[in-house]
């Protein structure tokens, strides 16, 4: 499976995820959340940022079910799901992930036929990656 190819701006997200925390970059001056992380705030142009804990609750905004041809590790799990989750406290912050049966389960552990846009999910962590389970 592919590891996140980190950059300096995004690295804190993965450091918090490795500790089982979901945090989103926020402007330290105007407070606006932003994702994906970037060096500067598009609202007030501040370069000061902080990483704000979020509840880890959200709703499914959309989802896909990929089928081969895919990279071998993913083809072995296909068809699997990929979801986009909008966070409860900031619906415009949307995270890509997988809906799984339980923390640590594979990305094909849940029947794609059960996935619905709008369904409530919450975050869990496995090997430093956020995953989502039905709430």
């Amino acid at each position: 499976m592919l590891e996140p190819v980190r950059d300096a701006t995004g690295a804190p997200f993965w450091q918090y995820a490795a500790r089982g925390e979901l945090r989103v970059q926020a402007c330290a001056d105007c407070g606006e959340l932003r994702f994906p992380p970037r060096p500067c705030c598009p609202h007030c142009r501040s370069f000061e940022a902080e990483w704000r804990p979020v509840s880890g609750r959200g709703r499914i905004w959309s989802y896909v079910v990929p089928h081969p041809p895919l990279l071998p590790d993913y083809a072995a799990r296909a068809p699997y799901n990929v979801i986009v989750v909008e966070l409860e406290e900031a619906p415009r912050i949307r995270l890509v992930g997988n809906l799984v049966a339980a923390a640590g389960a594979a990305l094909d552990s849940l029947d794609p036929g059960r996935i619905r846009i709008g369904a409530r999910v919450h975050v869990v962590f496995s090997d430093g990656l956020p995953q989502w389970v039905p709430a």
Binding site: E3, P4, W14, R77, V82, V96, L129
Partner: peptide, 8 residues
């Protein structure tokens, strides 16, 4: 980094 590990 925000999409590919999840199979997108």
């Amino acid at each position: 980094q925000w999409t590919r590990p999840f199979g997108l």
